[in-house]
C-alpha cells in the first residue's frame, strides 16, 4: 500500500507538471521535486531517495535528456528530506517551507553543476530564477502536504455525513 501511494504520488506529480505546463504555457515550479520531498518527510529517507531517483529518471526520459541528470539531485533531496524529518520538527508550515526551499537550491546546484561540468548548458546568474522556483515549490509543497494530511480526516467526515443521511432517510 505504501509503495503504491509513493508510486501514485511520483507519477501523479509528473502528469500534473506536464498538464499545468501545457495549460499555463510554462511553469516555474517542479512538482516532482515537491513529491520527492513529501515522500521523504512522510515515509523516511529510503523512500525519499527512491522516489527522487524514480521521479528524476522519469523527467529525464520524457524530456529526451541524459538519464540520471535530474535524478541525482532529487535522490539526494529525497534522502535529506527524510533525514530532516527525523532530526527536526517539521510539522508547521514555516519549517516545511524551508525544507522545500532548501531542497530546490540543493537540486538546482546538483543539476546545474553537472550540466555545466558536462558542457550541456550555460547559466548566467541563475540565483533569482532558482529562488523564485524555490518559493513557488515551497508554497505548492506546503499546500499539497496539508491536503495529503487532511485527506483521511476529510474522508472520515464524508463517510460520517453519508451515514447520517442514510440514517435520516430510514
Amino acid at each position: 500500500m505504501k509503495t503504491l501511494q509513493i508510486a501514485l504520488l511520483v507519477i501523479g506529480s509528473v502528469l500534473l507538471q506536464s498538464l499545468l505546463t501545457l495549460l499555463f504555457g510554462g511553469a516555474v515550479f517542479d512538482l516532482v521535486l515537491v513529491a520527492a520531498v513529501i515522500v521523504g518527510l512522510l515515509y523516511g529517507r529510503v523512500a525519499g531517495l527512491l522516489a527522487g531517483a524514480a521521479g528524476g529518471m522519469l523527467q529525464d526520459a520524457l524530456s529526451g535528456g541524459i538519464l540520471g541528470l535530474s535524478g541525482l539531485g532529487k535522490s539526494l533531496v529525497g534522502y535529506l528530506a527524510g533525514l530532516a524529518g527525523t532530526q527536526f520538527i517539521v510539522t508547521q508550515a514555516m519549517p516545511r517551507g524551508l525544507v522545500f526551499l532548501g531542497a530546490t537550491f540543493l537540486n538546482a546546484a546538483c543539476f546545474m553543476g553537472l550540466s555545466v561540468l558536462l558542457g550541456l548548458r550555460q547559466y548566467d546568474g541563475p540565483f533569482f530564477e532558482v529562488a523564485v522556483q524555490g518559493f513557488v515549490n515551497a508554497g505548492a509543497g506546503v499546500l499539497l502536504f496539508y491536503a495529503l494530511e487532511q485527506a483521511p480526516t476529510l474522508r472520515a467526515r464524508w463517510n460520517e455525513s453519508l451515514e447520517f443521511r442514510r440514517k435520516r432517510r430510514r
Partner: peptide, 13 residues
C-alpha cells in the same frame, strides 16, 4: 499533447 515535465526543459510532446 503534453507540456514539459521539468522546469529545466523547454519543450512539448
Amino acid at each position: 499533447i503534453a507540456g514539459s515535465v521539468s522546469p529545466d526543459f523547454r519543450g512539448v510532446t
